[in-house]
Write a protein that binds this DNA or RNA. Structure first.
Lengths: 205, 205
DNA sequence: TTGACAGCCTAACGGACGTTAGATAGATTT
DNA sequence: AAATCTATCTAACGTCCGTTAGGCTGTCAA
């Protein structure tokens, strides 16, 4: 009989499908059998590639954080003013988030969940991301480009809520108002709204 | 033997404990046995008061929406300018949310979840709440108090994310930065930040 | 006084889940 | 050619879950 198995594929497909399902239904709402079925494989086969369901989830989470960290690194190195770089960062952030809808939903579920499986991963990988942004804002304040009465960390928590949180509920908005926040026009509008907000609350003029 | 049972209590206690646990661990992460144990009762006894776990959850959700609707009604009827009423509404909203931490977390989980049990409840009760706010902003725009280039519905989604979303992750912030967002000083700060933001992005001066 | 009922209990059912054991078959290495 | 390894399978185990059946007991109305 012809060999229909493509060994290396299964692991990658598992990561991809797991990401989709975890984003949609959460960790507890997704069974290994669900993931396996969508790949066209039986559940125990997944445990050949990952030691447990929990480890599979953590692998997904790690992959997401890596793409976030890559995106973050890509933002920082330009020679514009800090105000211009901030504007650009917000726009890039929206683009990135909009093109990774699964990421936003998993990340947000993990942040909002108290009994989350990924607590350790968040504890390790989230503070450095915020720290980078906080330092950036702090330097801007020192140089008089950003308002000094703004608390950088609080500002970032708010910005986090209004970008990630905003898109995390896009599925509900689609259901209730039949408006797709991930559409091109909507993303552009959101970019403008957020940039405006950041300019008005953070920038000195 | 003395009768230690206080019949009416159990139902109320169940609603209260269920609200706490659903907020903390989500619908799927909370079992009837968990809820029952915390009340000091066995699981099947809960089904004497509620026909199923799902109905218990929906009862919790209904209760939450009622308190939100009550709070909303309390805001509207003053005779100040719309700008002043908006400022007041934001402050009241923060106070309300901070004093109902369970509400925020359940509501947010429900909004972010695609397979949520409470979809129907949200579909019925969320749009009217937003509609009230949207009409208010719309009238303010007509009278020149609010910027006309702001889209009221988008603005409200953003405001929703930055208030509810912000507090929904307070447990994580406590864990990662040892800062309690629900403390008095933090709530006041948040009130000021949000009022500032709303003034700067929505108000005409 | 008695019968209905409310509120709890124990026991257990059926199903879903994560996981393990062990077999099989093709690919790779020796 | 033989041995080993890799990726899958089937079968099943133990656990947890929501829910049901049925029994007990104290309360209260007729």
């Amino acid at each position: 009989m012809i060999n229909l198995r493509r060994p290396i594929d299964t692991r990658d497909r598992a990561l991809q499908v797991a990401r989709e399902l975890f984003a949609e239904r959460g960790y507890r709402g997704t069974s290994l059998r669900d993931i396996a079925k969508r790949i066209g494989v039986k559940a125990p086969s997944l445990l050949h590639h990952f030691p447990s369901k929990q480890q599979l989830y953590l692998a997904v989470l790690d992959q997401l954080f890596e793409s976030v960290e890559d995106a973050t690194k890509a933002i920082v190195w330009t020679h514009d003013s800090r105000q211009e770089r901030m504007r650009q960062a917000v726009a890039d952030m929206v683009d990135f988030i909009a093109s990774h809808p699964d990421l936003v939903r998993i990340m947000w579920k993990e942040m909002a969940d108290e009994s989350g499986v990924g607590r350790q991963v968040l504890k390790r990988r989230l503070p450095p991301l915020f720290s980078t942004a906080v330092k950036f804002i702090f330097r801007g304040q020192r140089d008089g480009e950003f308002r000094s009465e703004v608390d950088p960390l609080h500002f970032m928590w708010g910005l986090n809520a209004i970008t990630i949180g905003y898109f995390a509920i896009s599925a509900m908005i689609q259901r209730l108002w039949s408006i797709n926040l991930l559409e091109h026009a909507m993303i552009d509008r959101r970019k403008r709204e957020l940039t405006d907000m950041v300019e008005r609350t953070l920038f000195t003029f």
